[in-house]
Amino acid sequence: MQFISLTLKRVGFGVVLLLIVLILNFFLMHLAPGDIADTIAIDAGGADEEMMDAIRKDYGLDLPIWEQLLKYLAKVAVLDLGYSFYYNISVTDLILERLPATLLLVISAQLLAITVGVVLGVIAARNPQGITSHFVTVLALVGYSAPVFWTGIMLIILFSSILPIFPIGGLMDVSIEREGFAKMLDILHHLVLPSITLASIFVALYSRLARASMLDVLGSDYVRTAKAKGLSEFLVVYKHALRNALLPVVTMAGMVFSGVISGAVLVETVFSWPGLGTLAVQAILARDTPTILGILFFSSFVVVVANLLTDMLYRIIDPRIRTSND
């Protein structure tokens, strides 16, 4: 019961946050010089003042700004994000078409990064002076300092050109029509390099964090108690220590989720992955304002949802948070 009311409260905060993002985006758009009328006029090769006014009236740009804002918000409330005249399709449809590819990439990269990062971190913490520990340190440094697009290109050169085992880019092989399981396998095959590229930065982050937090936990009194109970080394490390050591990792995962999405823009561009990232780049180049705004809105939506999930997960792992804040 308490869990539900708390969840509702968090959802409420999330909605308020999204509203603020929408309003900020709206005003940012208005701060930028030029509007749709200018773009249409340029595309048409020029227009007179009268025609410009007509276009502005068509798009509701002659109304007072607060009225425009209310109209915009009312439309967003029913998920109408406007119309992209570059793609000739409604922005909502456009985004929903591209969103699954981005979510697939972002989530698989995050899961990969967390799993690999935590495993490396734990191994390193169990033997802090050992070779794995040094390997993790070096990996962290390289992974974190190498730009994503560079890592991506290097992987393409290695595994698509020199050793051609993975496709260069794209979501699937469009030359062959595939259905069901075969199609899924093909998408997974295409997913390998982009998700490794995107995960590379975060593996570094998570492994360092997991190592530090695991070292801390392994020295704690309750780990000694677990040993004194006669539990095997494996149970002591993976049952008693790891669950406590995961808490900071979960927090970090929620915090960097927005970073993952912005990182995805670069990775999607390198691998021509048909997700929101490539869409954003194309929309910016085309000055397709409604699409850009729509993407901004959806990215913030995804970040808010991710944070909400992190919060819930945190509660499941740590009973101390479950019972406080009531």
């Binding site: 009194d221 000694r224 108690t225 677990a226 006669g230 669950r243 406590n244 792992i317 009973p319 101390r320």
Partner: peptide, 21 residues
């Protein structure tokens, strides 16, 4: 097999000796 079974130990700090999760 012996720890916690044939010989066991109670530690000084009850506040931190139990696993919080």
């Amino acid at each position: 097999g012996l720890r916690g079974n044939e010989i066991s130990m109670v530690f000084q700090e009850p506040m931190t000796a139990l696993n919080p999760v």
